[in-house]
Design a protein around this nucleic acid. Sequence first.
DNA 1: CCAACTTGCTAACGAACGTTAGCTTGTATA
DNA 2: TATACAAGCTAACGTTCGTTAGCAAGTTGG
Lengths: 189, 189
Amino acid sequence: MSKKKQVELTATELFQERGYAATSMRDMAQALGIEAASLYSHIKSKEEILQNICFRMAQNFFDAMEEAFAEEPATAQEKLTRAIVAHIKVITEDTSASAVFFSEWRHLSEPHLGEFLQMRERYEGIFYNILKEGVNNGEFIALDLKFSVLTILSALNWTHNWFKPSGKMSAEEIGKRLGFTMLNGLKKK
Amino acid sequence: MSKKKQVELTATELFQERGYAATSMRDMAQALGIEAASLYSHIKSKEEILQNICFRMAQNFFDAMEEAFAEEPATAQEKLTRAIVAHIKVITEDTSASAVFFSEWRHLSEPHLGEFLQMRERYEGIFYNILKEGVNNGEFIALDLKFSVLTILSALNWTHNWFKPSGKMSAEEIGKRLGFTMLNGLKKK
DNA sequence: CCAACTTGCTAACGAACGTTAGCTTGTATA
DNA sequence: TATACAAGCTAACGTTCGTTAGCAAGTTGG
């Protein structure tokens, strides 16, 4: 692994744990066993690390979605399940970067911040369209689309807080369960 | 409103917007139209503000839960719905403080941090027990309890990100809808 | 009215921040 | 072998941070 990759990995963990603003270059350097000034042999700036994390994760989410829909599923339910599974897979592949992605983007400076927010909006639109299709073709109950997209993403996006690779459930399984819960609810029929 | 209350309110909004660590005393002072040093006429320290926010919100959540269960509901479903509604009411009553509560607690120093985490664990236990009761008495499908508590709380806890008092839905309505979605799912029967 | 308190200010402190500059040593390449 | 580059270090910069100290003016209460 390149030193630059190591720097980013260490930074990601520290950003997750302490937050971007509360993580200093000296913290990062110490964790890597070097001096803060030496970090600049590998990176341009502190923010460059954050940008890399945020835009890489954003791209991962879009890639996963593209793969999930490589072949067009027949139903909106299938689409939703696939979208949820894909989303969870990205999160669980790198929970630290996901955590940073979900909460530290606000520290991006312009124009990166604006770009990031646009990407996010586009991504949410994918879920919106799936739900809309499901409501329109009668698969889903009548619902407030925006509200429901946010509810689903809320449930999904907190996964990084508690997912453990060593835990009982695989990412696929978690995704499937979340999909099931979203579609069927908790109540016994 | 007392000046101390104003300081806390302003700080809450800034903490929400920028994060605790990235909000300086000078930022807060500026927003209040005074100098940073003057803040110390009203507060002891920066962290005192954060402590006040976190522990006040924690208490609010417990109070709301106590009120929701003033009379013992008959079913686990009713309990869950009440718990969800109560939870959402607290969040929507003060979305800024809620946002700070959910994400900035990590900046608390010990022993406050430890206390906070204990309170949080106790609160999650309430949802855990409701789900457990529902599963045991056959109201809910067999499920992984921990996973489901986290799913529900995930969905609920992101509400502060998008709830708008001026929006179409009241807090009660949002709570009811979230409860309905959790219990029944999106799928049309 | 006067003393005590409150609330603001300026000035400053010691510490911490992200980063640059210059140097040294090790490594790679022609 | 000599040169160029990489990767580290120390020292330092200018800036920012949370906070304290001392002062002045306004407010409150006896």
